[in-house]
């Protein structure tokens, strides 16, 4: 099955739950397991939250783009912002690292994203924004492969 979905949201925290529920509903057509559904929802929440807090410094009138594709059980997710960008991507990926300790951030966002997705690519340029491209094979396809 091939399908795609594109969503553009304002950078406000109310949209964190909307974004994860919308993406969850979109992938549900592939009958993912409950764990896979929760993993994807958690990842969407992490990336959108990063864009709001770090990309846009919690300014409400910016745009976050979420693009989803399904292709034969592979789920492709790209989340883009046009915010301040990440200066040091390697450091941002370190567990427990946060650029905003004063906000009580745990620094575990990227660790969770990398654990829950099969691949994660970060493209970012300072002053221009960040785009995160992630893929995950969903089990409806994995099961099919086993039977083939």
């Amino acid at each position: 099955m091939r399908n795609r979905m594109y969503l553009e949201i304002a950078s406000i925290s109310e949209n964190e739950s909307f974004a994860r529920v919308a993406v969850g509903a979109f992938i549900s057509q592939l009958n993912p397991t409950m764990d896979e559904l929760m993993e994807v929802k958690t990842v969407v929440s992490e990336v959108v939250t990063n864009s709001i807090i770090h990309g846009y410094n919690e300014e409400p009138n910016h745009t976050i783009e979420i693009s989803c594709q399904l292709y034969d059980g592979e789920f492709d997710l790209i989340i883009t912002d046009y915010g301040k960008g990440i200066e040091d991507i390697e450091m941002a990926r370190e567990p427990m690292y946060t650029s905003k300790p004063e906000l009580e951030r745990s620094g575990m966002g990227f660790t969770i994203i990398e654990n829950f997705m099969d691949s994660v690519e970060i493209e970012s340029s300072v002053g221009k924004g960040t785009s995160i491209h992630m893929t995950k094979m969903l089990s409806s396809k994995k099961t099919k492969v086993v039977h083939e």
Partner: peptide, 13 residues
């Protein structure tokens, strides 16, 4: 029913 790393931050604090 749902928790992400923001929840971890509150708990750690």
């Amino acid at each position: 029913t749902f928790m992400d790393s923001s929840g971890l931050g509150v708990i750690l604090g």
